[in-house]
Lab assay of single mutants.
Amino acid sequence: PEDEKKAKEALKRANGDEDKAKEILRKLGVDPDRAEELLRRLR
């Protein structure tokens, strides 16, 4: 869904750096736990 698209985009923008991607997602208003879960799934 929408969050998943955001997560993929964030990872791309962060050049695969998960911590940076998490930060980006947090700024986009995605719940930190949700962000973590999404990134884990994309790994």
Rank of each mutant, 00 (worst) to 15 (best):
E23W: 02
G29H: 03
L42C: 03
G29K: 02
A10Q: 01
E2D: 13
E4S: 08
D31P: 14
I24R: 03
R41Y: 08
I24H: 05
D31G: 08
P1D: 14
D33W: 09
E36V: 04
E18V: 14
K20H: 08
E18T: 10
R41T: 07
R34Y: 15
D31W: 04
V30N: 01
G29L: 04
R34C: 09
P32S: 12
L25P: 00
A7N: 01
L11T: 02
D33N: 10
K6L: 15
G29I: 03
K27H: 12
D3S: 06
K20W: 09
D17I: 05
V30R: 00
A14T: 07
L25N: 00
D31L: 09
L39K: 00
E36C: 06
K5I: 12
K12V: 12
D33A: 14
K8C: 08
L28R: 04
E4N: 07
A14R: 01
E37H: 05
E36S: 06
E23D: 10
L11Y: 05
K8T: 07
I24T: 04
R40M: 08
R40D: 15
I24G: 02
L28G: 07
K27I: 10
A14F: 05
E4I: 15
A21Y: 06
K6S: 09
E9A: 09
E4T: 10
R34L: 13
D19M: 13
K20Y: 09
P32I: 11
L38E: 03
G29S: 02
R43Y: 05
R26G: 10
G16C: 11
E23P: 00
L11H: 03
E4M: 15
L38V: 06
P1H: 13
E36F: 03
R41A: 11
R43S: 13
L42I: 13
R43K: 12
L39P: 00
D19F: 11
A7M: 05
E4G: 06
E23A: 09
E18D: 06
P1L: 14
A10G: 01
D33L: 12
A14S: 09
D33K: 14
N15Q: 10
E9P: 01
R40N: 14
E37I: 06
K12G: 07
D19A: 14
K6H: 11
K22Q: 06
R40Q: 14
A10N: 01
A7I: 09
R26S: 12
K27W: 07
E2H: 09
E37L: 04
P32Y: 10
A35V: 12
K6Y: 12
E4P: 03
R40L: 10
E4W: 15
D17C: 07
K12L: 12
R26C: 06
A35E: 01
D17K: 05
A35P: 00
L39N: 01
A7G: 04
D33T: 12
P1M: 14
R34M: 11
K22Y: 12
R26W: 05
L38W: 04
E2I: 10
R43F: 06
